[in-house]
Structures are given as C-alpha cells and as structure tokens.
Design a protein around this nucleic acid. Sequence first.
DNA 1: CGTCACATTGAACCTCTTCAAGCGCCGTGG
DNA 2: CCACGGCGCTTGAAGAGGTTCAATGTGACG
Lengths: 198, 198
Amino acid sequence: MSNGGSFDQSCAPTLFARHDEIYREGKPAEFIYKIESGCVRTHNTLNGGRRQIDAFYFPGEFFGLDAHAVHGSSAVAVIPSAIRIMSRAAGDVVTTQHLLTLTAGEMQRIKKHNQLLRKRAEERVVGFLLDLAQRGRNQSEVDLPMARRDIADYLDLTIETVSRTLSRLERASAISLATPWRVILRDPSAIDWFNSQT
Amino acid sequence: MSNGGSFDQSCAPTLFARHDEIYREGKPAEFIYKIESGCVRTHNTLNGGRRQIDAFYFPGEFFGLDAHAVHGSSAVAVIPSAIRIMSRAAGDVVTTQHLLTLTAGEMQRIKKHNQLLRKRAEERVVGFLLDLAQRGRNQSEVDLPMARRDIADYLDLTIETVSRTLSRLERASAISLATPWRVILRDPSAIDWFNSQT
DNA sequence: CGTCACATTGAACCTCTTCAAGCGCCGTGG
DNA sequence: CCACGGCGCTTGAAGAGGTTCAATGTGACG
C-alpha cells in the first residue's frame, strides 16, 4: 500500500495547540491532513449533548477523508500537534488513486472499530490498547494522550466502566498503569491473538 | 452523485437462489456487484461461530467494495436475487473515479451503521426499519426478506430482543406486524426526525 | 396430520449504567 | 510556603436493559 510518500512533503506542517479545532463538522471538505506529531480525534456531537468519537489519529496517519463535500465530523488536537494540510482538489498532488487508497484504508479502520463496538466492555478496552500498541513505536508500552472521557466516547462506554476495566486488568496482571496515561502491556503477544479474532 | 448509469448495463445479470453464496471472505476482490432484484447480506463468521452481519443491500445498490485485494466478508443472497457483476480492474468500464464515489458511499453507510450500534435496542430496531423504509419504494410499509437471526446479527442483539422490541412497538401502536416479515409504519414522518438525529 | 424451522413469550441472571462519594494532582492566591 | 479549589480518575452501591435458558406458538411442506 502507498504510504503517501509521493506527496507528503508538499507543504510545511501547521501547529495546533491542545484542544484546537482543525476543522468543523458541516464545513466543506477541501483538504486532507497528515499528522507529523501529536494526536487528533474526530467526533460528532449528537443533539442531546452526547458526544461520539469516531477515531484517533497518530503520527504518519491521514485524516479528513470524508465521503462527501462536507465533513461529517469535527477534528480536534488531543495534544499539541503538527499537521500537514493538502488540497484534495483534482489535478493537485493528491491523485484520485491516492484518495481511493486512503479512503479504502479509512473504511477498513471504521470496520475494525465497528467490530470493537460489538464486543463486551473488557474486550473493547483491551482491543483499544492493543490497537494503540500496534500503531505506536513500542509494542509493550502504550501512551494514552487522551482523557478517559475520550476513550469512553470512542468505545461507547462510560468513563466509570473504562476506569474500572483498566483497574481490573491491572489487578489481573494483564497490564500495569505506570500513570493513568501510561500503560504497560504484560503480554504484547496478545496483539497477534487479538488480530486473529477477525 | 453518480448512480453508476454509465456502466450498469455492461453485462447480463446473474441469478442467485436463496442462501447462495456470491463471494466468500478471503477470496480475491476482482468484481463489484449491483443488485437488480432481491436482497443480499454480507457477513463475517468470527471464530466462535458467532456471526456478524455488516450490511444488507437492495435493488439499485452496489456491494463488494472491499478495501483491499481480498474480500473482508462473504456475500449471500437473502432471497432469490439478480445481480450484475462487473470487473473492477483498471482500464475497464469501472473507473477509479467510479470506485472512489462508490467506496465513499459505502464508508458513509458503515458510519451510519456504526452510530446505530451505539444506541439502545429499541432505537436500533426503529432505525433499522426506518432505513429500510427510506430505501424501499413504500415509505410506510417495510418488507423484511431476512430472518430475525439476520436482523439480530446486524444490530448486535439477540433474536429474542429483536422479537420482543417489535412486539412492544406494535403494542405501543408505533408499527403493525401484518406478518412477521411485513411491517407497517404508523408514523413514516419519523424518518425525517430520526435522520436528523445525526 | 406430523414435522421442521422460525418466531414469540416468560423468568432468572449478568453486565453496564447511573448516582454518589472519595482521592490525587496541580495551579492559584493569600 | 501552604491552603484552597477545580479537574480528572477511581471506587462503591443500586438499578435498568439485554442476554440466557426454557417453553410455547405458528406457518410451510411433505
């Protein structure tokens, strides 16, 4: 698969502070974005104030690949982040073929998230941790830049359930919480097992 | 949006009987498919025998738009169906632009399904019925060609909960079950309301 | 008329949510 | 420098919603 190498140097990265909005739901989707450093989340706010997080993105990953002319969700920096912004207009450095590849990858990601939402709370949390471990540099240590509220809204659980589940996993010696935002996985090989669970 | 009109006549439809497999998970994704008549479901079988239905497709809709070189799920005819099969190879009648449009639409559909999975049982069932009503010819009468087991595996509920929820909706005069596979919606305008619930 | 597959209904159980309180960290101000 | 207050995480107890197990109902087909 293309890693976007052919067009990722097309502009200087823009800096965003913690909780800065990168684009807003409903606005025209003119650009695609690539994370250089930091972490971004995309979310919709349903009427009722309830918030739904669609995805977290980490360095090297692309986001903003909405289906239609307008963004279906808002993007916000979870921590200070550097992001490359590229026009998705036809005829630009971003080709239709690129877009198709990236969009197909995004679809894959959503399907995976979909499967996660069908599992029980503990499996969701474990799946989330293993996913982050796999995407991070260190397979056995995971950094959680986002708050419990964000994790809960991503996994469709309450913050209490997320917290309780992490505590239970720690008591069971499956993980270790160095700090609430730094998790050590006791069995990194669990990643392979989990990924085989289609 | 393109309705695919430029290439939907490129071959004669193939007929599939009830429960016939159209393609299988893991096989190369060489074609895309358009339903002329009938109904198709796509599903994965997780190890553990548990089945997960990703989508139902109806006349006029496309399926088989998997992200990668191989299908991520199997496709099966729910009832006797006529399906047009087209090669997705580059240089064929199906252009990259077509594929991007169709894939983006598929992504939209998955996101919608995703939101459905975050709701409570009753909302999932109602959302499912309204979705089918909207896609069908008659806004106030829905035909359910699939079994309760299929609906349950699509909504991530048990067949008991689906059945109980439908019964409760009928007692509440929200719907009417002419037969277990024919639902009359008492308030079709609910579709607009439900779609506004992001 | 009997059988089979599917749908419906009931009751006990379990998981997650809800409501409520406690804890720890950090920045601010006296 | 330390007390205070706010914010986010954790923990506990009660309650609601769905699942599980089990039985009953119903229509199609031989």
